[in-house]
C-alpha cells in the first residue's frame, strides 16, 4: 500500500458517496447513466468473486464489499425506488452498453494470462471497467447543464484512475517482480477517456460557471 493507491481508493469511495448523496438528498438521479452504474455492478461482481476464495487483507475485503454494496444500492435507487426512478432520463441514456459487455467478453477470451473460468471473468472485469464510463460521458453531453454533484462524481472517478496510474509507476519502480500489463494498458485507456471531460470540467470551474460538455 502506498499513498497513491490509498488516495485512489479513497477518491473512488468518495465518488460513490457523492453519487449516493446526490440521489438520496435530492431524491433525483437526473444526469446519471443507469447503464454505466449497471456496468460497474457487473464489473464488481465479476472481479470480486475472489472474495469467496482468496484473502489479501481486511482492507481489501472491506473495500470490495463496500464497492459491491454501493453499486447495487445505486442501481436499486435508479431502477426501483418509487421516487428516484421517475427522475431517470431514460431518453438521454441511449448508449448500447450491451456492445461494451460483449466486446469486453470477446477480448477477455482472446487476451488473458490464464485460460480459466475465474481468470477470464477477472480479465473481463478489467476490460469492462475501462469502458464502463462511456454511457455516462455520452449522457453528460446530452444533458446540457450538469449539476455540481454529478460533475464532481465523474471528476472524482477520473481522479481515482489517474491516482492508480501513479500507484503503478510507484510500485513498478519500488517492487521487484511487479508486472500487470493487461491492467496497465486498460487503465491507461480508461484514464484517457476522461481527458475531454477533465478539460471542460476545469475550464468551467475556472470560469466559475455551470458545467456544460459541448
Amino acid at each position: 500500500m502506498n499513498v497513491f493507491r490509498l488516495a485512489g481508493d479513497l477518491t473512488h469511495l468518495l465518488s460513490l458517496v457523492v453519487l449516493l448523496l446526490k440521489i438520496v438528498a435530492t431524491k433525483s438521479c437526473r444526469g446519471v447513466s443507469a447503464k454505466t452504474q449497471e456496468l460497474y455492478a457487473i464489473v464488481f461482481v465479476t472481479r470480486y468473486l475472489d472474495l469467496l476464495f482468496s484473502f489479501v487483507s481486511l482492507y481489501n475485503s472491506v473495500m470490495k464489499v463496500v464497492f459491491l454494496g454501493s453499486a447495487f444500492s445505486i442501481v436499486y435507487f435508479m431502477r426501483y425506488h418509487k421516487v428516484v426512478r421517475h427522475t431517470y432520463d431514460r431518453e438521454l441514456d441511449t448508449f448500447r452498453s450491451s456492445f461494451l459487455v460483449a466486446g469486453s467478453m470477446v477480448l477477455a477470451l482472446l487476451i488473458n494470462s490464464k485460460y480459466t473460468f475465474f481468470e477470464v471473468l477477472w480479465t473481463f472485469s478489467i476490460y469492462l471497467e475501462a469502458v464502463a464510463i462511456l454511457p455516462q460521458l455520452v449522457m453528460l453531453q446530452r444533458t446540457g447543464n450538469i449539476d455540481n454533484l454529478t460533475g464532481n462524481y465523474v471528476f472524482l472517478l477520473g481522479m481515482y484512475r489517474g491516482l492508480y496510474i501513479l500507484n503503478w509507476i510507484y510500485r513498478y519502480s519500488t517492487e521487484r517482480r511487479y508486472w500487470q500489463m493487461i491492467v496497465w494498458v486498460s487503465g491507461i485507456i480508461q484514464t484517457a477517456l476522461y481527458a475531454d471531460f477533465f478539460y471542460y470540467y476545469l475550464k468551467c470551474w475556472n470560469e466559475n460557471r455551470t458545467l456544460v460538455i459541448p
Binding site: R5, D9, H12, D50, S54, V56, S57, N60, M63, K64, F67, S113, K114, W122, Y164, N167, R177, Y178, W179, Q180, I182, V183
Partner: peptide, 10 residues
C-alpha cells in the same frame, strides 16, 4: 521473471 499479476489491487 515477473509475476503476471498480484491481484492485490481493487
Amino acid at each position: 521473471v515477473h509475476h503476471t499479476h498480484a491481484k492485490d489491487e481493487l
